[in-house]
């Protein structure tokens, strides 16, 4: 068989064909809202974020300090053992300079791009990163391996969300790194 010898299906339309009613169509909007339970580990994670602290969870078998925290170790397949506070500093593992929004619409001209990054948090096991944003930095100056520090919302504005950290900014003086929260639980 050769594909060229068959009449292939699928009728291509333009968006304007649909809008002009050349073919019939119907619009539907699902009317659903979700309340996702945080569970124990993420519940605590968010509660600590509200207090301006980043908490991880440690597995005493493989020794990993995991962030976001989880109540079971997916490698050892056993419960994790203890809560461990991390610093609010870290290292950029990778990043992007993003000119589109979540719905693929373009960020308007003149507005700053989004600066998503994977940040390896100090105090968690090497390679253990979280998704967050960068700020107070020229996009072209961002480098993989750059040292960064969390910029928190004011305590009264925090609500127990990952967005209680507004973004991570470059550490001006890397030698002074590690001045993150040292308060204990």
């Amino acid at each position: 068989m050769e594909l060229e010898k068959f009449k292939l299906g699928a009728t291509n339309l333009k968006q304007k064909d649909i809008e002009a009613g050349k073919v019939l169509s119907i619009r539907q909007t699902p009317d659903l809202e979700y309340a996702w339970d945080n569970g124990v580990a993420i519940g605590r994670y968010l509660k600590e974020l509200k207090e301006g602290r980043i908490i991880a969870r440690k597995c005493n078998k493989c020794g990993r300090v995991m962030i976001p925290p989880r109540m079971f170790c997916e490698l050892c397949f056993r419960p994790t053992d203890e809560w461990v506070y991390c610093k609010d500093t870290g290292t950029v593992n990778t990043f992007s300079i993003c000119h589109i929004n979540w719905d693929a619409s373009r960020i308007p001209e003149g507005m700053p791009p989004h600066l998503p990054a994977v940040i390896e948090i100090d105090g968690a096991s090497p390679g253990t990163g979280i998704l967050h944003l960068l700020g107070e930095v020229e996009p072209e100056k961002i480098k993989i391996g750059m040292r960064v520090k969390a910029v928190w919302k004011k305590p009264e504005e925090r609500e127990g969300s990952i967005t209680d950290i507004m973004y991570f900014k470059p550490l001006r003086n890397p030698s002074k790194s590690g001045t993150g929260s040292k308060r204990r639980s």
Binding site: Y34, W36, N38, I42, Y45, L46, P68, N93, T94, F95, S96, C98, I100, N101, W102, D103, A104, H114, P116, A117, V118, I130, L131, H132, L133, I144, S161, I162, T163
Partner: peptide
């Protein structure tokens, strides 16, 4: 939904960051 969606991610972020790395 809790630790990432509030940052308004697009899927392209992951690809872009994997590409970069």
């Amino acid at each position: 939904h809790t630790t990432e969606q509030p940052l308004d991610p697009t899927l392209v972020w992951i690809f872009a960051m994997e590409y970069n790395r």
